[in-house]
Each structure stands twice: as C-alpha cells, then as structure tokens.
Amino acid sequence: MDTAAEWLEWDERRAREWLAVPRDGDDKYSRGVLGVITGSHDYPGAAVLGVEAAMRAGVGMVRYTGPSAVRHLVMARRPEVVGVGGRVQAWLIGSGMTTARRTLILGGELDQAMAEGVPTVLDAGALDLVHEARGAVVLTPHYRELATLLMETARRAGHGAVKVSAEHGGPPHVDQIAAQPALWAGRAAQQLGATVLLKGAVTYIAHPDGARFTVSGAPSWLATAGTGDVLGGILGALLATRHRTIAQDPDAVAPIAATAALLHALAARRASQGGPITALDVAEAVPATVAALLSGK
C-alpha cells in the first residue's frame, strides 16, 4: 500500500473546483468564520502570519482567541480580526506553540475548541490533540514533528498496539520518514484517523480512508521561517469557506488540504520570481494566485 502509483499529483484544474467564490447574497458569516488559536510568547509571529494568510485566502472572518499578548500584534497587523470568541466553521490551532508551554487556561480553550466538532487544522504544538478532536482533522507536520507524534502515540498505546510501525518494531525515526514520506504519511493517516499533510519538497496528503495526493513544484526558496504558518492559515480559511461541503462529506477535507498546499506553492512561485522570499511575501501573493487559479491563467 501507499506505493507511488497510488498517489495523484494535485493540479490547478482540480484545485479550482475547491475554491469558494462569494455569491451576491453572501455575508461575512456565510462565507466562513475561522477560529484561530496560535502563537506564543516565544513565537508570536506565527499567529500574525497565519491570520494574514487566512484573511487573504478568502475567509469571511477570523476570530483570534490565542494568547492575549499575541492578540495585540495580530490586530495591529489586521484590525479587521475579531478578538473575542463566538461561532466558527473551522479552527486553526497550534502554529507557534509547544506542548510543554501550554498553560491551564490555554488548555481549557483548546479542549473547548476540540469539542465543537468543526473541521480543524492542527499544527506544531497542537498535533497531539488529534486524539481529542471530534470533527474532521488535518494534521500539518514536517518530518520531525510526525516522528515525535508517532512516538508519543506509541508511548500512550504501548508498542504492541502500534500498527503503523509493525515492520520496523517501533515508531519511525526522522530519517525513515524522510526516506519514505509517502509510506509514513499514509500509515499515519490510517493510525491517527486524520488527514495528514506531510510537508516537504513534495507535500503528501493522505486521508485515512485511502485518498492520496501529492503537491510539488514549489520553489526551493519556500524553505524559510514562517511559511508553514502561512500554509496553516490558507488551509484553515479553505476549510471554513467549504464548511457546508465538509458537513455533507467529511472526506472532502483531503482535496481541500491538497488545494491549500497547491495554492501555497503557487503563491510562493509568484512571490519569488526566481529569487528569495519571506513568509509574508507568500501570504501577500495569495489573492492574485487565487484570481489566476479561478481564471485558469
């Protein structure tokens, strides 16, 4: 299973079908509201970047309810962000956070978000919450984060119960995942019961029920700090704008995740033009990239 032949390269024609275009009667609520709990004292920029990308990817509203000190930075950059809780259609959680530094107050907010049952992106310091979430989940790890998550899952369950790593006698090491990312993305999705978006030069998107997509073609300049946070914002926005579709078909999270990864890669290419880029450059290129995708140009 999870051989190269079973993976479909996601392209612009397929992605176009998953972009939500506002109708005349839409308002900010019907277009989708994304809840965001990201950033920390150590990494406040992750929240700023994720929110920036989400706002530029077509969501109707962002509610940021992360750490209060970070909230001031987010709203200084994006004053249209709402800084109080309320109903959301999707969550983006964990970018710029670490599991070791989560406070009791923050932990309570995360538990409440996990219990809402809406589509959720779990990144970085919230990947371990996959076992708590009630709605459709997309995990966005890089190789090391996936190795850590599978190690922690194995520790909780006991090595004898870890189906994902039976051939290797234990959870995979980072070098094993790097050597066979398609294999481990697929196995992790099946074990964890969540869509896994494994980041890398080629991004692998695996759904637990079998959908397998790849996204490639991003410029190598994309390997720079903060671009993963931008991807999280794009993905959260697309989940929120497509919340009605997901409610009818939870499996839709996989093609939506692939669309987010492709939009991220195309925006990076547009921003780079062959030269260096920053994460904020990628976020700022998203609207023009969406327009180009929709027009087929």
Rank of each mutant, 00 (worst) to 15 (best):
A185C: 09
G170A: 12
A288Q: 13
A271G: 11
S30Y: 03
T103H: 03
G193H: 07
V36Q: 07
H159K: 07
A57F: 10
G193W: 01
E9S: 15
D11L: 09
E9M: 10
E145W: 01
R13I: 14
L49C: 10
S40L: 04
A147G: 10
T195M: 02
G50L: 08
R31P: 11
D209L: 08
L197H: 06
T140A: 04
R56Y: 02
D123G: 08
A5N: 10
E6W: 00
I256K: 10
V174G: 00
A4T: 12
G226Y: 13
T224S: 06
D229Q: 06
E80I: 03
G275A: 15
L239M: 08
R13C: 12
A4H: 12
Y143E: 08
A113D: 04
V70E: 04
W10N: 10
A76V: 00
P276I: 14
S220C: 03
T259K: 09
G25P: 14
P287I: 09
G85W: 05
R242G: 08
A178Y: 02
D251R: 15
I277V: 15
A268S: 14
I93D: 05
V202I: 10
W184F: 10
A166L: 08
L92W: 04
L293Q: 08
L150S: 07
M75H: 14
G217S: 05
A292Y: 00
D128V: 01
Y204H: 13
G135H: 07
A4W: 06
T103D: 05
D251Y: 00
A206G: 03
P119T: 08
A113C: 09
A201F: 01
M55V: 07
G32I: 11
R144S: 01
R244E: 14
L294S: 07
K199D: 02
Y43E: 00
L263G: 11
T153K: 05
I37F: 02
T259D: 12
R269A: 15
G45L: 12
A157N: 06
R13L: 14
R102V: 13
A218T: 11
Y43M: 15
H131A: 14
R16N: 11
E80C: 06
G32L: 10
G233P: 06
H131K: 12
R155S: 02
V81R: 03
A225W: 08
W221L: 09
T98Y: 02
T259S: 15
A257E: 14
W184S: 03
G96W: 02
R63I: 13
A182L: 01
S30T: 15
L122R: 13
A188R: 03
W221M: 13
V59N: 08
A240C: 13
K28Q: 12
H142W: 05
G125H: 05
D229L: 09
A136M: 01
D111L: 09
V82I: 15
I277D: 08
A268N: 04
M97Y: 01
L235G: 07
H41K: 01
A279F: 11
D281Y: 11
S30K: 05
L106R: 09
S40P: 09
A182K: 06
P79T: 14
M151V: 04
I105L: 07
W7Y: 13
K297S: 11
V74L: 00
L19M: 13
T227K: 14
I256W: 15
Y204C: 01
V36W: 04
G158E: 10
